[in-house]
């Protein structure tokens, strides 16, 4: 089993505040969809923020392709190949879709190559081509999320981390988001997802991670996590799930 990213026993929090995650670990294998579940305040988003460098890690290690990422800035980590889409989606509301995609390739030095990749993205996501010259802020939630996810593909990252991509979206649209994720993983992009809707997330994932009170309780194949009665009781809302 090859590991793409390995997080061991990390502690992190905001500013001088208390540690939100304390003793979390995580293993990410290439090409799979990983889903982190857990109740509100468990530290799921904090874990992603710590990995991408937005929060400083107080203890523990984040190792990516055998290289320690601790202490690097978000822009440096992005250059290593880890891309993060936060809950707020990090779009430039007053920029057009095309400009947003262009910002997505900020770290690329070759302008021609960048334009070619933008074309590729617009090819694959017709809805974005349709809205290419519209301000991102004027699009619907699902379209914005599509843009945020599509934008990560411009730099061809190894890992895309998504923080609750389904938040505030209609059920039908949510499934579209998961379809995009599957497509990404089929292309070899590893997906690391935080999902409030645990059942939905796990069903669409290969690997499940349960986080509570800042600690990793459990990680394993998504199907196993789904089937475990204790997890069903504690985190999946009763025994009805199967």
């Amino acid at each position: 089993m090859t590991k793409l990213l390995e997080v061991t026993n990390i502690t992190a929090g905001y500013g001088d505040g208390p540690a939100i995650i304390d003793g979390a670990h995580l293993t990410v294998e290439p090409g799979k969809v990983h889903c982190i579940i857990g109740p509100n305040g468990a530290g799921k988003s904090t874990l992603l923020k710590a990995i991408c460098g937005m929060l400083s890690i107080r203890k523990g290690d984040v190792v990516f392709k055998g290289e320690r990422l601790n202490g690097l800035r978000p822009d440096q980590i992005l250059r290593k190949g880890i891309c993060f889409v936060p809950q707020e989606r990090a779009l430039f509301a007053k920029m057009t879709v095309r400009e947003n995609l262009r910002m997505g390739g900020f770290i690329l030095d070759d302008k021609k190559e960048l334009e070619r990749r933008i074309e590729g993205i617009l090819e694959r996501f017709p809805i974005l081509r349709e809205r290419a010259d519209q301000h991102a802020g004027t699009m619907s939630g699902g379209q914005q999320q599509t843009l945020a996810m599509a934008r990560t593909l411009i730099i061809k990252p190894d890992i895309v981390m998504l923080d609750e991509p389904s938040l505030g979206l209609a059920p039908k649209v949510v499934q579209e988001m998961f379809d995009i994720m599957k497509m990404m993983s089929a292309e070899g992009v590893t997906v690391l997802l935080v999902e409030q809707n645990a059942l939905m997330g796990l069903k669409n994932a290969d690997w499940g991670v349960v986080l509570d009170l800042g600690r990793t309780l459990f990680e394993g194949p998504a199907a196993t996590v789904l089937a475990d009665p204790r997890i069903q009781e504690l985190y999946l809302g009763g025994k009805k799930a199967a």
Partner: peptide, 21 residues
């Protein structure tokens, strides 16, 4: 990979939640 979810793990969480509350 085998999956084990120890009893201690779940009860530790319950305990921690109580202290936190």
């Amino acid at each position: 990979m085998t999956v084990t979810l120890q009893d201690s793990s779940a009860s530790a969480v319950i305990e921690a939640r109580r202290t936190y509350n």
